[in-house]
Amino acid sequence: MSLTKTDIRNLILAAAALAICALLPLGDNGYWLGLGVTIAMFTTLATSWALFSGPTHYISLATAAFFGVGTYVTGLGIDALPFWSLVAIAGLIGAVLAALVGLATLRLSGVYFVIFTLGLAELVRQSITWVQNNTGQKGLYVLTDLDEAGIYWWLLGLAAAVFLTGWLIGRSRLGFALRVIGDDETVAAHSGINTARAKVLLFMLPGAVAAMTGAILAPRYVYIEPSLAFAPILSFQVVIMALLGGASRLWGPLVGVIPFTFLLEAVSSNFPNQTTLVIGIAFLVIVYLLPGGFVGLLGKILHRLNAREGA
């Protein structure tokens, strides 16, 4: 398919926005850069999450599992291999793991999928703890010369790749197939769509991306241990941010990530123990007040305006 004028305009705008974001480390190296890393990380995670869960409505809580695997890839390989190859390996392992999980669960209904993905992070975490206990190892030190700015640029590059991939999928047959599946799986199968294959293929994307994100962020933690790398709260944060923004549009999760990061930041600096509470409240707000996220809200407002103009 060829590019329309709007497509080209959007691409140029996106490239410009990316370039501006890339300048952040030159202006500030402390608080704001730290926040930038958090936003870039959650944008990457939530956007890739929504690429699969948006159209299919399967809620995946496996982000922490893939992310943790990624941090361990860096932790184990950092002394032997160059950093970029660790990110690539993490992506590969994440994709394969996601394919296995997908093959095992995506034929099941949504509820089983949620439970399974939540259990996955715990399973991997317990296995690693078990191995560590039996080998007498405690955690892993990740010592590199990659600083906060370097991590930020890596994440920004990954985020850009996710947006580009998402945009391409949205124009592809696979993206269309996922929309049909999300609307009615029986119709999808009776229209010639290999539903299992399409779902597994697309689930590999958030798996790979979350693992790569974990690999990139590992140097930030310096010392990695299972409870840190596989913290289940990460999975919930990603889901809530994506849904708050709206999973039906490529840019939707981003709209959720930015305000939510600031909110969490404010909460955790003022009431350090209440972050879980904030996440819980955000969840209730989304379910009751914003079922389609900010994207859905915007759609409703535009619809009303149009209706008024038409009247």
Partner: peptide, 29 residues
């Protein structure tokens, strides 16, 4: 190819996209 006793359509799509859904992956693509 078949229709269903209780009509099944794709609610998030417009009329044309509903028809295209049948054209992309089936017998003749």
């Amino acid at each position: 190819s078949r229709t269903f006793q209780l009509v099944r359509l794709l609610p998030s799509m417009n009329v044309r996209e509903n028809v295209i859904a049948g054209a992309v992956f089936g017998h003749r693509r």
